[in-house]
Amino acid sequence: MNIISMIPARYQASRFPAKLMQDLGGKPVILRTYEAAVGTKLFSKVYVVTDSRAIHDLIKANGGQVIMSKEEHQSGSDRIAEAVTDLEVDVVVNVQGDEPFIDRESLTKVIQVFHEDAGQEIDLASLMTPITDWDEISNPNTVKVIVDNNNFALYFSRSPIPYPRNKELNTPYFKHKGIYAFRKRALLDFKKLPMLTLEATEKIEAIRFLEYGKKIKMVETNVTGVEIDTPEDLERARKEWK
């Protein structure tokens, strides 16, 4: 099975423009993320896919594989779908450019889903991690996910889900980590499907699959890091890096 990683890297992030070029321990965030993905040794190739000449030149100058987007894209998955069209691959792992703390253990778990899926019935897998801090649960920058008994996603939201009307139940909450593993055909299907209302409202690309009736297998991991969505996240990441 040929498994590659693609890291979508949009320069003008809405909440924190140019965040991927911010310094993290002496190197830009996007370069740290690229090096972390390569360092797992799980992929035949790792690419950064970007709309930015500055990011392109940075990765190239450091010996990395990088692809310039030809079109404008609404989501990272749309961006890598364009890039993967003519590549001979089976599974594409979408690692977000603002996740420099990605780890081999978590990625191995999400890739294992496809090794165990002999019937090739699962098109998409992703990661979730337990969260208990109510400030994080309430934070709209933290995407939450709820799952069924077989760990297939029921819904993703920036709001707290489920709503804790009965607080005595101690219902677990899960944060969605921005890592997706697609079969190539599912990724190409994703690009063809128009964005619908729920995805547009929440600004969460995984919702597009749910709106079209597709299943997302969620894999639990206890490995945590810092996803850099805001300047405050960047400061936390710098402290963590030290």
Rank of each mutant, 00 (worst) to 15 (best):
R208E: 03
K45S: 08
Q96E: 15
N166Y: 10
E220P: 07
P160D: 03
G63D: 10
Y180K: 07
L124R: 07
S126M: 14
I59S: 09
T40L: 02
F156C: 06
V92S: 04
V29H: 00
K27N: 11
V147L: 12
I146F: 07
S5D: 00
K214Y: 14
R238P: 03
E199T: 03
G64Q: 11
S157V: 02
N166E: 10
R32K: 13
T201C: 08
R183N: 02
F174Y: 15
F209D: 00
T171K: 13
F182S: 03
A118V: 05
R183I: 00
Y47I: 01
I67E: 09
S159I: 00
Y173W: 08
I137W: 06
T224P: 00
E121A: 14
R53P: 12
R158K: 15
L87G: 02
I216F: 09
E82H: 13
F101P: 00
E199I: 00
F43K: 02
V145M: 13
T230Y: 12
V226Y: 05
N170C: 07
T221I: 00
T230D: 07
S69N: 14
T50K: 12
G119E: 13
G39K: 09
K70I: 08
S14I: 13
E35H: 07
Y212W: 05
G225Y: 02
S44L: 07
L188K: 11
H115E: 13
V219L: 08
T129D: 02
S126H: 12
G39M: 05
F156N: 06
R53Q: 15
A18P: 10
T40Y: 03
E99Y: 12
I7S: 02
A61F: 13
G119K: 14
P194M: 13
G119N: 14
F152I: 04
V49P: 08
K217V: 03
M6T: 02
E232W: 10
K41T: 01
N170A: 07
K45P: 02
Y180G: 00
A54K: 15
I102P: 01
K175N: 10
G63Q: 11
R104P: 00
S69V: 13
V49M: 08
V92A: 06
E82L: 10
D90G: 09
S44D: 14
V147G: 04
W134E: 08
K45A: 10
L196C: 03
L210F: 03
Y163G: 01
P194E: 08
T50D: 07
M21I: 12
R158N: 14
K27P: 05
T132K: 12
R10Y: 14
Y34W: 05
I80C: 10
I131H: 04
V91A: 03
N166F: 11
W134K: 07
P130G: 03
S126C: 14
